[in-house]
Design a protein around this nucleic acid. Structure first.
Lengths: 233, 233
DNA sequence: CGGGCAATTGAAGTAGATCAAGCCCAGTGG
DNA sequence: CCACTGGGCTTGATCTACTTCAATTGCCCG
């Protein structure tokens, strides 16, 4: 089965925004597009980083597992975002697993091909550096939060971030457009599913959110932001 | 007073390792070398990122201050490392302060000049992307630690990292070669100076470390690593 | 020699982890 | 169609590693 190759599919993809349509087509042809069934692991922590990926549709979770058996959710990838690229370009093993959380579509390139493309289109190299920079800043921010803020505040910030990344307006409010568990939230905030559960229950009570099994709707964003940033921001 | 411009001074500097001596000289000439008295602030959080820096000698602390008044020590920079570069290249304000913790020497370039240099020597661009990647991975690691490990373990890891970055062999053991306070350690581990003080006291007791005012010597590295990584690694 | 930054150390309080028990609901297969 | 099963969620009770508060000491530099 062949998926159609539409250069427009890459509109908004961070890696390709700076390229013209013709160039995009060349880049597309050098890669492989494939469907990913929900739950499918795209690469595993420790695998040699030999491929660069960009998500075209769906949602992918990047999870790091720690020696003690615990996991950390590093981030969720949305359409247009690349992943696995930094590791590949640095010839390092992947530092985390990548798992499709819903049925998704991605395109991927062997790192050798990507290097060739980057030589030909320096914009690609610059974009990928910028993307690394953005993530560096984001992590720095999260590091500061994690060491200074209380759990509720961290959960609020995390949910607010998810709203920005994956919020879909509904009549009820803004819904996170992919299934997310309390456990996920716990692993993103350095907490436990128990505490997350209690927190969400309390928020539901107050009408801030409406959460259910794998589903999260923010009904009063202003209140959430208030919790995330008490003395305003 | 003119500091002499010795291309060899840049040996081991991550940004320049890939360049020949002639090219290095060109790069050097485009920048400004200056001494930094201990305590001197090189740039401040929020300043427009208009300069790229590389430390030639000494030690620089990168500190983020949070809205609530607290601070996070993001990292310490040693000779050869660059700083402020990612922000500058992305046209973002600096996300943190940079402060010289001992008398130091740095070289810095206006970001416009650095962009020109990077076009001329693509290696510079690639190196700086790689450097961002390394730091990205390091932060990911720290994020995982911070959310999962107990304070003592985090302090141990942090000290172990400092030993790697700034350890100097002495007859007593390995000494961190710049002045560091309990407060610094607390801000690096997301803890308080009280807890750090108690922890170091306990370690001193056991002969793991020998700490005093702004000074830290690791006497039994194997024990420290044991604490940092209980079930081996 | 004195002023202030760094560090120590005790005592008390608490956020949130951990332990424990049970419930709810979406699939699955008979 | 209904019973079963297991993953996801809730909620109470207890426990504890840290923070916070408070006081004191000691070191270094001017």
């Amino acid at each position: 089965m062949t998926l159609h190759l539409d250069p427009v599919a890459l509109n908004g993809a961070e890696l390709f925004d700076a390229l013209g349509e013709d160039d995009r087509m060349d880049v597309l042809r050098a890669g492989t597009v494939r469907r990913l069934a929900k739950g499918r692991r795209i690469f595993a922590q420790g695998d040699p980083g030999e491929t660069c990926h960009t998500l075209l549709d769906g949602r992918v979770k990047i999870v790091q597992s720690r020696p003690d058996g615990g996991q950390s959710v590093i981030r969720f990838i949305g359409p247009g975002e690349m992943f696995g690229t930094v590791a590949a370009l640095m010839d390092r093993p992947f530092p985390a697993d990548a798992v499709a959380v819903v049925d998704s579509v991605e395109i991927h390139w062997p790192v050798t091909a990507m290097r060739r493309l980057m030589t030909r289109f320096p914009q690609l190299a610059i974009c990928s550096a910028a993307s690394a920079g953005r993530r560096l800043f984001e992590l720095q921010e999260r590091l500061g939060e994690l060491s200074a803020e209380r759990v509720e505040q961290r959960i609020a910030r995390t949910v607010a971030r998810l709203v920005r990344q994956a919020g879909r307006r509904t009549e009820e409010g803004v819904e996170i457009d992919f299934p997310i568990t309390r456990q996920d939230l716990a692993e993103m905030t350095g907490s436990t599913l128990h505490t997350v559960s209690r927190t969400l229950s309390a928020w539901d009570e107050r009408g801030v959110t409406a959460s259910s099994r794998r589903r999260l709707v923010v009904r009063k964003l202003h209140l959430l932001l208030e919790i995330a940033d008490p003395d305003d921001g």
